[in-house]
Computed example of a mutant assay.
Amino acid sequence: MAAEPDFAVRHMHLRGLIRKEGLQILRDPSSIAIAFLMPIVLLLLFGYGVSLDANHVPIGFVTGVQTAQTQSLIGAFHHSRYIEPVRFQNMQAARAALMAHRIDAIVRLQDDFSARLLSRRPVDAQLIVNGVDANKARIVQGYVGAAVQGWLQQRERARGRDTALPVTLVPRIWFNSEVRSRDYLVPGLVAVIMTLIGALLTALVMAREWERGTLEALMVTPVTLREILIGKLLPYFILGMGGMTVSLVMALWLFDVPLRGSLIVLVLCSALFLLAALGMGLLISVIARNQFVAALVAIIATFLPAFLLSGFIFDINSMPVWLQWLTHLVAARYFVAILQTLFLAGDVWSVILPNALALAIMATFFIGVSRLRMSKRLE
């Protein structure tokens, strides 16, 4: 008979703590701004500002003698949305434009280009690429090579000749058929944003309680430590999921990123990741006990690793081996893999289940360690 009153009392304690935290959120709109305004701002900034696409790349063309063949070759580049041809009379003008970053590459055709081409002799064309941005330089090389190869094949077919190529490559792109970097970056960006939101929400809130001394006062009441943790985490979990909803809506309707997987799976995995992020923020606040220090540590220990080591922008397999092992400690790494799979490929369970399990383990670890750390500090 005593179990029912005890349950009712515990339920009343928990409801009171949740109501108290809800009123605190309404009095201090910074938490609402972090949960709803920050995702909008960051998605707009990163979604439109960060792009790995190279479209309309200005490339200079230097031709000594204007012929039908050189005009045809340059015209082939005009049909590509990736290249914007710019003509120069001589190499001096083209070099000056390259040095001034007005163009990204130079294609130089020899004076005897047409004569050699018509007599089917070997023809050399020089390509000079600005290699300051190594990634863009490789992309430009690929663009120019593909354009020239396509022009040669089309020219030979028009003459009724064999292209003399033993293998013809027919590309087929899976998962991101339009090859838009935004479709790849925006899902990863959602994980980075949710990392910052989850860590900051609990880090600042718990640290504020430490500074004001209200947490010690709360501990002398009949409420248990478990009720305090649930009462603190649940309201901010709801806020975090609201921020996740805003991010999802922007990804689907503003950035037009496809969602090929299950929405239910996405929500469940997002909940696991948010619990892990909240647990990290809670642990930081328990250790720091100061809002400024907690916010600084949350950014350094959660946001930066999520941005650099999650695979959001930089390929993990291209990193040194020791750094690849270190990425396994970053919760965002697992969530980025899940998001990119759900958005671009679908419900690939061989990817989703292991990463979801890793998130569940990390959430349990951080929340469990935070509870132990808090109990030791308040004894």
Score class of each variant (00 low, 15 high):
residue 38 M to T: 14
residue 38 M to V: 15
residue 50 V to L: 15
residue 18 I to C: 12
residue 50 V to A: 11
residue 45 L to S: 02
residue 11 H to F: 13
residue 51 S to P: 04
residue 36 F to G: 06
residue 24 Q to C: 07
residue 28 D to I: 00
residue 35 A to D: 06
residue 48 Y to C: 00
residue 55 N to C: 00
residue 53 D to H: 01
residue 20 K to I: 06
residue 47 G to F: 03
residue 19 R to I: 12
residue 13 H to M: 06
residue 14 L to V: 09
residue 18 I to W: 07
residue 25 I to K: 11
residue 17 L to P: 03
residue 47 G to A: 06
residue 18 I to F: 08
residue 34 I to Q: 05
residue 33 A to I: 14
residue 9 V to T: 14
residue 25 I to E: 09
residue 42 L to Q: 08
residue 12 M to Q: 14
residue 28 D to Q: 12
residue 54 A to P: 03
residue 14 L to E: 09
residue 56 H to E: 15
residue 22 G to H: 01
residue 21 E to Q: 12
residue 23 L to Y: 10
residue 11 H to W: 14
residue 38 M to N: 00
residue 21 E to F: 05
residue 15 R to G: 13
residue 54 A to D: 03
residue 39 P to W: 04
residue 35 A to G: 08
residue 28 D to N: 15
residue 27 R to V: 01
residue 10 R to Y: 07
residue 28 D to E: 15
residue 46 F to H: 01
residue 37 L to A: 14
residue 47 G to W: 00
residue 42 L to D: 04
residue 37 L to W: 05
residue 23 L to H: 11
residue 56 H to N: 14
residue 9 V to P: 00
residue 44 L to S: 04
residue 28 D to A: 10
residue 17 L to Q: 11
residue 24 Q to H: 15
residue 17 L to T: 02
residue 49 G to L: 13
residue 22 G to A: 09
residue 26 L to H: 08
residue 42 L to H: 04
residue 13 H to Y: 11
residue 52 L to F: 12
residue 20 K to A: 14
residue 40 I to S: 04
residue 55 N to Q: 13
residue 51 S to K: 00
residue 56 H to A: 15
residue 9 V to W: 09
residue 26 L to W: 13
residue 13 H to L: 06
residue 48 Y to T: 05
residue 25 I to D: 08
residue 55 N to S: 11
residue 37 L to N: 04
residue 12 M to R: 15
residue 42 L to E: 06
residue 22 G to W: 13
residue 13 H to V: 08
residue 24 Q to V: 08
residue 54 A to Q: 08
residue 19 R to V: 13
residue 57 V to E: 09
residue 23 L to K: 13
residue 22 G to K: 08
residue 23 L to C: 07
residue 43 L to F: 04
residue 57 V to M: 12
residue 49 G to C: 07
residue 17 L to F: 02
residue 46 F to C: 05
residue 42 L to F: 12
residue 49 G to E: 02
residue 35 A to R: 09
residue 25 I to W: 09
residue 36 F to V: 08
residue 29 P to F: 07
residue 43 L to H: 02
residue 41 V to M: 11
residue 47 G to T: 05
residue 29 P to A: 09
residue 36 F to A: 06
residue 57 V to Y: 05
residue 37 L to S: 05
residue 34 I to D: 01
residue 16 G to K: 07
residue 51 S to G: 00
residue 48 Y to G: 03
residue 28 D to W: 00
residue 51 S to F: 02
residue 35 A to I: 06
residue 38 M to Q: 03
residue 35 A to N: 10
residue 24 Q to F: 02
residue 10 R to M: 13
residue 13 H to P: 10
residue 27 R to Y: 09
residue 31 S to G: 12
residue 43 L to R: 03
residue 30 S to D: 00
residue 12 M to A: 15
residue 11 H to K: 13
residue 38 M to K: 03
residue 20 K to L: 12
residue 32 I to R: 01
residue 35 A to V: 07
residue 36 F to C: 06
residue 48 Y to I: 01
residue 15 R to N: 05
residue 57 V to G: 03
residue 35 A to S: 10
residue 14 L to A: 07
residue 10 R to E: 13
residue 32 I to C: 08
residue 32 I to S: 07
residue 19 R to M: 11
residue 21 E to P: 03
residue 11 H to G: 14
residue 18 I to P: 05
